[in-house]
């Protein structure tokens, strides 16, 4: 037994070494698109489509000119601010309100709560195109076309997945603690915040990560809902670089792609454990 264990865990076996080498090559292929975009962001625009795989040299190098034109044309810092604002506020709203809602739905079982739960599940699956026209009109009538106004829209459209994940988690949580807190005289809100919320912590991470990934990268919903003359998120700003006649300044585009990717990579490297955990936990329940 000991011998087989040793053999299994041995990272120096020939096969495992070969796999390691293969994975190094694959990782290089995986990272290459990011390197390519970074290198091209420093090249003059005509050289980008002509020879995208060449390194920038004295003739083709544009310095930081692409970044300057890109930032000027997209107002990138503002897009970054709006993207951050919308993502943070929407995720916080979703975490707070849907966890409360899910607790109620899983502790009070009657016809209305079961129906509502089913509707939440339905909303998880329905493609956005089904509601995009009517939703954008309704949001417009209700003046939800600002970075604050869009928060309830995200709460509504994101509620399905969140309620589903929270409810799934709550099924495995025993009610005894909540009941004893109530017998001790705590009101429901207090029971929720001091007993239920702490237990839900891992689920908060999972729901928060999944929703943040979706909202940060979402294009069509904010494109249709926001007042685009005043507010653009990062994906919208990137897509806006494409002019009305299909002409694109590829230099500015490369620079903005770098700026769009960079913060995500930094956040990923810092919070990697939580992100991977969030995906795993979310998928097991999904």
């Amino acid at each position: 037994m000991n011998k087989t264990m040793k053999k299994r865990k041995n990272s120096n076996s020939l096969l495992n070494r070969l796999i390691s080498v293969g994975m190094v090559l694959l990782s290089l292929v995986y990272v290459y698109p990011f390197v390519m975009v970074l290198l091209n962001s420093f090249k003059k625009k005509i050289y980008i489509s002509r020879m995208p795989f060449a390194l920038p040299d004295a003739k083709t190098c544009a310095g930081i000119a692409n970044y300057q034109t890109g930032i000027a044309r997209t107002d990138f810092p503002m897009a970054m601010l709006y993207s951050t604002m919308i993502t943070v506020l929407s995720v916080l709203a979703i975490l707070l309100f849907t966890s409360m809602c899910a607790w109620y739905l899983s502790r009070v079982r009657n016809r209305a709560t079961r129906l509502l739960y089913r509707l939440f599940i339905l909303s998880m699956v329905v493609p956005f195109q089904m509601v995009m026209f009517t939703l954008s009109k309704i949001a417009n009538v209700l003046r939800l076309n600002t970075p604050i106004g869009i928060v309830p829209v995200y709460l509504g459209f994101g509620a399905g997945l969140a309620v589903f994940l929270f409810s799934g988690y709550m099924k495995s949580v025993p009610v005894a603690m909540e009941e004893s807190a109530m017998i001790d005289g705590a009101k429901p809100l207090r029971v929720f915040f001091s007993v239920v919320l702490p237990i839900l912590q891992p689920c908060f991470v999972s729901v928060g990560i999944l929703q943040a990934m979706w909202i940060w990268n979402d294009y069509l919903l904010p494109y249709l809902v926001l007042d685009l003359k005043r507010y653009k998120t990062i994906p919208i700003a990137v897509q806006y670089l494409k002019g009305g006649y299909g002409s694109v300044d590829m230099g500015a585009m490369m620079a903005m792609l770098v700026l769009a990717i960079l913060p995500i990579v930094v956040v990923y490297l810092v919070c990697q454990k939580y992100i991977v955990f969030g995906v795993m936990a979310g998928a097991v329940k999904g």
Partner: peptide, 11 residues
């Protein structure tokens, strides 16, 4: 709160 948003955003 969730129900209201759900009504606007989905239902």
């Amino acid at each position: 709160p969730t129900l209201l948003a759900f009504a606007i955003g989905f239902l």
